[in-house]
Amino acid sequence: MELEELKQKLKQQIVTQLKLNEINPADIGDEEQLFGKGLGLDSIDALELVVLLEEEYGLKINHSEDGPKIFYSVSTIANFILENKKA
């Protein structure tokens, strides 16, 4: 799957999985911060994203300290998926 296609898919999955009913997936910027300001996700959302990566992409985050970097934005998640799928 190409990077652009993956990013669009991730935006849709984030909105659905995290029940962000008032957000249009297309309105999420590729580089937009997901936690804190930006989309304002919380710690439970982070755990849901971990589950999403495991169940949809078969990927685990082996070091919890990598989480903030991986989940910073849609782009960083997409890059993590592509890099680790290739490995």
Binding site: L18, K19, I44, D45, L47, E48, V51, E55
Partner: peptide, 8 residues
């Protein structure tokens, strides 16, 4: 499966 969002 698991769902932290349901568990809470």
């Amino acid at each position: 499966t698991a769902s932290p969002a349901v568990f809470v």
